[in-house]
Design a protein around this nucleic acid. Structure first.
Length: 277
DNA sequence: CGCGCAACCTGTCTGC
DNA sequence: TGCAGACAGGTTGCGC
């Protein structure tokens, strides 16, 4: 499922290919894509506009338009944004929207489960107010430090994994990289967030940054449906240490990786390396 | 405010 | 073999 590394991979590819292009058409094939706005309302904001930059906030992909507005796309679980030099691409059954570009290229949004959306965050009056309640610190920005992480964990009694999944606190971690970061840090996913000592917080901070950086370099994890914007697989799925590895030996100690439910999510961890003290 | 949980979807897996 | 139900998980919204 697309998390920060997958969205960042798509962002980099699109930045190279669509920056400077004008949007010549928006064909919405599934009205859920633009909802609650109508397809006509969304098209009115994007058609004729030029894409001046491609950015990212957590798992949100942002195409900055020359109007100053952001055309935001969220892939949710099974969304794909596919760029092609010619016409629409991707699995015809699941194509939800087709964006035409002035060089003849096409961005095709497909999404089996129909959770993904595209919408406008207007430049006025205050886009930051829109993001403030949704996305927290960017874990690959210099502003993400052990002290900042400690502040986010402080006073919270819920499981530390729930904090990592909360986009309003740390932006971009999902179920895959939360599991991987907790394993790399040697922290049990159900540890009460506020109970971590400063050494554990430091290890967790380092693990989050490291796992995300490695995953970005690997082009993300292609589990189930994820492909990048050129239709290629990532390779991080081959380097996951515990996620999806129930029953396999822990790569560190050899004990058996287990799967339980934490924060309403399937959670993979090592009972020896991640002790809930 | 913090936390848990249902809902949104549909293809695939699991168990009887 | 077939079919019902569980499962997958990012985000929103509601209830306590």
């Amino acid at each position: 499922m697309p998390e920060l590394p997958e969205v960042e991979t798509v962002r980099r590819q699109l930045a190279e290919r669509v920056t400077g292009r004008a949007i010549t058409g928006l064909e919405v094939r599934d009205e859920k894509f633009s909802s609650p706005a109508t397809p006509e309302e969304l098209a009115a904001e994007v058609v004729g506009r030029r894409i001046v930059a491609v950015g990212r906030r957590g798992k949100y992909l942002l195409m900055r338009l020359d109007s100053g507005d952001d055309f935001v796309v969220h892939l949710r679980m099974t969304g794909r944004l596919h760029w092609s030099a010619g016409g629409p691409a991707g699995d015809e059954r699941f194509v939800r929207a087709v964006i035409g570009l002035d060089d003849g290229g096409t961005l095709t949004f497909s999404d089996m489960r129909r959770f993904g959306r595209g919408w406008i965050v207007p430049a006025e009056p205050d886009p930051e107010a829109y993001w403030a309640g949704r996305v927290g610190v960017e874990p690959l920005d210099p502003g993400f430090t052990p002290v900042v992480l400690a502040g986010l964990l402080r006073g919270r009694r819920g499981p530390v994994k729930a904090v990592l999944l909360n986009q309003a606190l740390v932006a971009g971690l999902g179920n895959i990289y939360a599991d991987e970061a907790l394993f790399a840090a040697g922290v049990h996913p159900e540890r009460s967030a506020g109970d971590l000592d400063r050494h554990e917080v430091a290890r967790l901070h380092e693990a989050i940054v490291d796992r995300l950086k490695v995953a970005v370099e690997a082009g993300g994890s292609s589990i189930d449906s994820y492909r990048d914007s050129l239709g290629n697989y990532g390779s991080m799925q081959d380097r996951l240490r515990v996620h999806l590895h129930r029953g396999d030996p822990c790569p560190r100690c050899g004990d058996t990786v287990v799967k339980t439910r934490v924060a309403q999510r399937g959670t993979y961890w090592c009972p020896t390396c991640q002790v809930n003290r």
